[in-house]
Design a binder for these strands. Sequence first.
DNA 1: CGGTTTCCTTGATCTAGGTTAGGAAATACC
DNA 2: GGTATTTCCTAACCTAGATCAAGGAAACCG
Lengths: 195, 195
Amino acid sequence: MLDPDPRFLAKLRQQAEFTDAELAEFLECWETKLLRKKDHYLRAGDICRSTAYVNKGCLRRYEIGADAKENILNFALEDWWVGDLESFWNQKPGRFYIQALEDCELLLLSRVEFVKACDRFPKYKAFHDEKMHRSYFATLKRMTVATSGSAEEKYLLLAKEQPQLFQRVPLHYIASYLGIEPESLSRLRRKLAGK
Amino acid sequence: MLDPDPRFLAKLRQQAEFTDAELAEFLECWETKLLRKKDHYLRAGDICRSTAYVNKGCLRRYEIGADAKENILNFALEDWWVGDLESFWNQKPGRFYIQALEDCELLLLSRVEFVKACDRFPKYKAFHDEKMHRSYFATLKRMTVATSGSAEEKYLLLAKEQPQLFQRVPLHYIASYLGIEPESLSRLRRKLAGK
DNA sequence: CGGTTTCCTTGATCTAGGTTAGGAAATACC
DNA sequence: GGTATTTCCTAACCTAGATCAAGGAAACCG
C-alpha cells in the first residue's frame, strides 16, 4: 500500500525521534496520491487540506502575477515537501499552484489527521514546526538571491546547487524560476558555453 | 523605567492573553535600549541575543551583497519587531545589519529571559510562534512583489501601503528597498509627478 | 557662522534583458 | 506513420534602469 522512500522513514526516526511502533501507527494515517504529468495538486483559491511528501516525481510551485505571467517559486523533487504552508496553517484560500512536471506519487497527511497526530505525537508537531522554520529561513535566503545579482549569477548558482533540475525540468521553467525569459536563458547558456 | 507603547501592552493582553498580574511579572524581564541615529542594533556576523520591539524611532534592516552593495529588506517603525529571527532561533551568526535611522528606543527581551518566559508562559511562546509565522508569510508575499513587476509598480504599492515611510526615510533608502538606484527613483518620481 | 556631509536631482550614455518573429528537433497523439 | 504539439534555439530590435558625471540644496557640526 504505502511505499515510502527510505529517506521519509529515516527523517521521522531521526529528526522526529519516532520509535518503530509509533512509526507503524503514524503511517496508518497517511495515504498515497498519484498525479499524472500536468495534473495540479493545488490551484490558486484552493484551501490546502494536506501536507504532502514527494515520494516520486517532480513538481513546480508557481503563482500567476498581476500581468498574468507564471512565476515559479520552486521545484520539488523526491524527498521534498510540497504544499502551501500559509493556506494549510490558516485554512484559507491560497495563491499558489502546484503542478506535476512528471507522473508523481505523493504521500499525504490530511489536515484532520495532521491535527490529531500533533496532539498524539508532540514530537511530530515539533518536527513540523522545525520544517516550517527552515522553510522560512530558506525563503529569506532565496529572496536575497532573487533580488540581488544578475541573471548569470543566479543561473550559475542554480547550476551548482541543483544540477539535477537540468536533467528533469524544461529550460523555460528554469527561466521562469530565475526570473528571466526563455530567450534570455538561451542567450545566456550560449554565452557561457562559448567560454 | 520601562515605558511601553500602549500597543505593546494591548498585544500582550489580547493576542497572548496575559492577565494584568502576569503582564506585570513579564515586563520585569524586559529592558530598554536607546540607540542614537546611525547606531547599529545588529551587524552581520553577530549572534542575535534578544528579541526587540520598536518603542520609538525608525530602523532599517539590510544586508551587504557579494557586490558590496547594501540591500534593504525592510524598515521598522514604532510597534514593529526587529531582529534576525534565524540567528535568534539557532544562536548562530546572522547576515543582517539593523541600523537606527533616527534616535530609537527599543524594548529588549534577552534570549535567556525569552527561554524562561516561553517556559513560564506557554501563551507567550504561542504568541511568538504566531509572529514568526506571520513574518514568514509576509516574506513570501514580499518576494512576489520584489521579483515581479516594474519599479514603478513597486513604488506605487509602497506609497499606498506605507506612506508614512516617505515622511521619515531618505529617498535613497527607499530606492534600495525597491531594488533600484537613487537616480532611477528620482526620475520615476518626476515622471509620476508630471502626470 | 562657514564648512562639510548628506541628500536629491538632472543629463548623457550604456547594457542586460524583454519583445517579436521565426524555425527546427523532439514527443505525443491519432 | 504522419500530423500536431511541445521544447528549444536564434536573430533583430527596443526599453527600463544602471552608470557616469555634475551641481545644488538642505541638514549637521565645529
